[in-house]
Amino acid sequence: MKTSTAYHCAAAFCLSILSVNQASAHWLYVSNEKDDTISIIDSETNEVINTLDVGERPRGVTISHDFTHLYICASDSDTVQVMRIADNRIVFELPSGEDPEQFALHPDNKHLYIANEDDAIATVVNIETRQVVAQIDVGVEPEGMAVSHDGRYAIVTSETSNMAHWIDTERQEIVANTLVDQRPRDAEFTLDDSELWVSSEIGGTVSIIDTESKEIKHTLNFEIPGISKDRIQPVGMELTTDGKLAFIALGPSNHVAVVDRSTLEVIEYVLVGRRVWHMVLTPEEDKLYTTNGVSGDVTVVDVASLKAEKTIKVGRYPWGVAVLPKEHIPQ
């Protein structure tokens, strides 16, 4: 591995920090789509402390609920790689179906729902047995994936069919479809699962869908002075657990919209890097990390002041980002 030396140095450095200031920093795992690597950022120094070689065209990344493994959609390798966080080794690969782009982990920590973009299917994999449990036909170009916090529904958005498909996780079948605006990307449930938020990249909107009726109950629109409406393309979303704020990455407009969820008004547009794609909140929800695909960097946004604080250079075309809380960082 080309980065092994760097890794050992970085690890030694981290250990010394940990011993002084016990685990004050989280780690952020950023997938670099065009470099076939994962960058690890330390949230204390906001610097890249390690770069790992992974499969081809890594996109979606997520961490297991017990914080021991990182799952990586290696799209062009047609596999989901499972990396052990303790030693950064790829310990096995999951059968994912072709061209996996994004996935979501069921609360049971066992079932992974994977969008297979090229094949118009969603694959459900049991991580323990490493077997495909089900393959479900969905619309053209499945993209966004979400599982409700109560585990009842898995959502797939299909970009060309413009739908959110509701999969009943008991039966592994579609039970409803909600038509949204053009090119739906990300899907997120609110903490109480009463609402599903779906961003539409080309439609330029976010649909807030009532879980009970599966109907759109509100549509968010965005407007940034001096930026053409065509460039405002909502992609990734993060909702705070206190129910107060929502962050919407607006792609090539290079801004993140901050929505007050009590009024559903945009209260701020934060300028970040170019073509902002996905985001993650730290466990305290005091900082937001955004991946900026075109500029090849990650922006740190302070949640209290809603100001961009720092830009961190990573690999080419950073895509996904996941956070490892400090108490789970390997010693």
Partner: peptide, 24 residues
Amino acid sequence: MGSWSLGQWIAGAAVLLLGSTNVL
């Protein structure tokens, strides 16, 4: 052809409340 399976239609029909955006 498999993707047109009856099972899906039936599964779909089992859910009530068809609306303008919730399409079945």
